[in-house]
């Protein structure tokens, strides 16, 4: 198994992930975070900070999904029959 891994990652030679690879991944993560995305390249953001912010961002998104589910639930309950019929026709398309 380790043989297959090192063959797929010829640059590293061992199964150990190189620092560069991790740094690349952290930069990629950073670009996905609204707060850190716009910070300039020269402003070095620490890996710990990126990971921390990633956690917070995911948690926020989870919370948004919770809220939106509740609102959808209420909206679908309150839609009058005409609109409900409309939506149903949309859903069955």
């Amino acid at each position: 198994m380790s043989g297959r891994r090192s063959r797929s990652r010829q640059s590293s030679g061992t199964s150990r992930i190189s620092e560069d690879q991790i740094n690349d991944l952290i930069i990629k993560l950073q670009q996905l975070l609204p707060e850190l995305r716009d910070s300039r390249r020269s402003d070095k953001v620490s890996a710990a900070r990126v990971l921390q912010d990633t956690c917070n961002y995911i948690r926020n998104l989870h919370r948004e999904v919770d809220d939106l589910s509740e609102r959808l639930s209420e909206l679908l309950a309150n839609t009058d029959t005409a609109q409900a019929a409309l939506i149903r026709s949309l859903l069955t398309q």
């Binding site: 992930i17 690879q21 991790i22 991944l25 952290i26 990629k28 993560l29 996905l32 975070l33 990633t54 961002y57 995911i58 998104l61 989870h62 948004e64 999904v65 939106l68 589910s69 609102r71 959808l72 909206l75």
Partner: peptide, 27 residues
Amino acid sequence: ETSKLMEETAHYIKCLSMQVKVMQCLV
């Protein structure tokens, strides 16, 4: 493993924010 976790996290974040946008549209 750590590198895989980060890759998956990047993809997961993208999908999650897409999900939030679509749900917001519906609302």
